[in-house]
């Protein structure tokens, strides 16, 4: 098992919600990144989680920046550090709204320009910070405050959009698998150029499940095949162990949807759409892993 450093860069004085998985994600990201790291953060849950002025729960510098601007801000920061011969890690830590919606132009530009940075999108599948409005990353059928009848549209596949930029490294992860996340962040930071890690981060108040089930909810997402753990290193795809197992024998999707209040009363059609999307994704990733496409 990977040795995870004891040093903490996220102190216990955060203002996160009870059961917040994204603060777990941040904790492991920072353990992997170490002290020579700057976080660039657009508006997101962690804007609040980090603490309120004059306090901070963060033991690395955090540059808070406007919603659409994180990747571009990181571009400038990385260029300045590299010009000054500094190897400081520049990590964007952004939510799904700041990534797949309002921040996508800057994200695309920074990846196209081969910015040396790591972009982490922690995905709680809605605008959690402001009380769960739909985002492009909200899955079909999920109720949010702006989709009270369940979202009719499909979750935007940001991984395929990022893939189109051909980054040297990209991966998915999940808060329920911290060792996997730690290893991926470590690997990403060892590679020069633009890197992307997309982390599923279940959200108790937003998804409406009991706070103590936050780890279980992440595991169910993977075990039902609703979330696939994979890496793409210089174009080569590897599907990680837990998702490999789920592809062979997935748990029924109801085990994942059932405990979540956001899916209460979801239509059969919406469930079918979720299942069929998950199957298509799994098939495509398997074929890519085999090198067929």
């Amino acid at each position: 098992m990977t040795e995870i450093p004891k040093e903490e860069y996220l102190f216990k004085c955060t203002s996160a919600c009870a059961g917040c998985s994204s603060s777990l994600v941040l904790r492991y990201v920072l353990k992997a990144a170490g002290p020579d790291t700057v976080l660039v953060m657009p508006a997101c849950c962690t804007s609040v989680i980090q603490g309120i002025y004059p306090n901070t729960a963060m033991n690395v510098p955090v540059y808070n920046v406007a919603f659409a601007a994180a990747a571009a801000c990181a571009s400038g920061m990385s260029a300045a550090f590299r010009a000054g011969k500094k190897a400081t890690n520049v990590i964007v830590y952004a939510g799904d709204g700041g990534t797949v919606d309002i921040g996508i132009q800057a994200l695309s530009g920074a990846f196209e320009r081969r910015t040396d940075f790591l972009y982490i999108c922690y995905d709680n599948e809605a605008y959690g910070n402001t009380g769960m409005q739909r985002s492009g990353a909200t899955p079909t059928g999920a109720r949010t405050t702006t989709t009270p009848g369940g979202k009719p549209d499909t979750k935007k596949d940001i991984d395929r959009i990022v893939e189109a930029h051909d980054p040297p490294y990209m991966a998915t992860a999940c808060s329920a698998y911290p060792h996997d996340l730690f290893k991926k962040v470590t690997k990403a930071l060892s590679i020069r150029g633009p890197k992307f890690i997309h982390v599923l981060a279940p959200c108790p108040p937003g998804w409406r499940y009991p706070t103590e089930q936050t780890v279980e909810m992440g595991k169910l997402a993977v075990k039902t095949g609703m979330w696939v753990l994979f890496e793409r290193e210089y174009g080569k795809v590897t599907i990680n162990g837990p998702s490999k197992a789920a592809m062979i024998k997935p748990l029924p999707i109801e085990e994942y949807l059932g405990p979540q209040g956001r899916f209460k009363g979801i239509s059969r059609e919406a469930v079918d759409a979720l299942v069929s999307l998950a199957r298509r994704n799994a098939k495509r990733l398997s074929l890519q892993e085999e090198g067929v496409c």
Partner: peptide, 26 residues
């Protein structure tokens, strides 16, 4: 200089901001 050919003016100023906060002239 490091010249960053950004994809928009919003990003131009964002990149200047990210660079400037490291102490770089922009």
């Amino acid at each position: 200089s490091q010249y960053i050919p950004v994809e928009s003016e919003h990003s131009a100023m964002a990149a200047c901001i990210g660079a400037s906060i490291t102490g770089a002239r922009t």
